[in-house]
Amino acid sequence: MLCAGALSWASASQARDVAFVACPIVQDTSNVPCWLSEHGGEVYYLGIQSDVSAAFNPPSLGHLALVEGTVSEGERICGGLVLEPVKVSIMPALSPECDELRMVQPGLELPFEPPRPPGPSSGRLAFAPPPPAPPPTPPFEAKTFEIFFPFEGTVDFKTPDALQAVLAYARAVGEVRLQVRAQRAAVRLSDGQVIAEREGIAAVRAREIGRMFAALGEGIAQVEVASSDVPQLGDWRQRKVEITVTPCDEAGRPGC
């Protein structure tokens, strides 16, 4: 959804930060493909295909992508300026014009060995999961966790991992009350336009997260969901759900 730039913008884009909506491009190599995007006459390198353990998940042909990243000073990869860090969100509307898959070009290869080839692995995921956090210890008090989403994104394959810290804390506490608060976000693009997530998405996020916890049952005495449909202008950190875990002892029995 494109809006006039009427919303407040807390921090203007830094010189090397970019935010734009454009078609993604697949550039095949003799190993795994690169993902690129073109904007303002420049080609940007977003990342490579690996597997579900990767922080970067490639977007989708057939859809525009919102690219939010910082231009790296390093060498180009697959012909593109490297964005690192980068957040890429798949825009939900179908965009059949986004359909460019470039075949392998002589001399255009990855300057590194990808962590995961396009076929069978060497027996491990591309990226080792982070070491488990130490188990929560008392005293237990109300604690708030944040879960972030892609632009226009809701619960997906990454959400269960993102909830692990919440679950670990809730289980350590015992009986808890959960408050789920979701919000809708907006982003100012490099060209000054502001795009906001669709109306109602905060409620969907809150409902879906609440449903995940409610389905767990044991130990979760109550799940409250709330949402704000007022677009919060900022970067990816505004696309979030806050989950507050309150021990039932602290919340008071009637509330639990």
Partner: peptide
């Protein structure tokens, strides 16, 4: 044998990209 897997719900939507060059 790799090929391009495309537009397959719950495969191309789980972080591999669409399309994904796989087997």
């Amino acid at each position: 044998r790799t090929f391009w897997i495309r537009d397959s719900m719950h495969l191309n939507t789980v972080g591999l990209g669409n399309p994904t060059k796989r087997t």
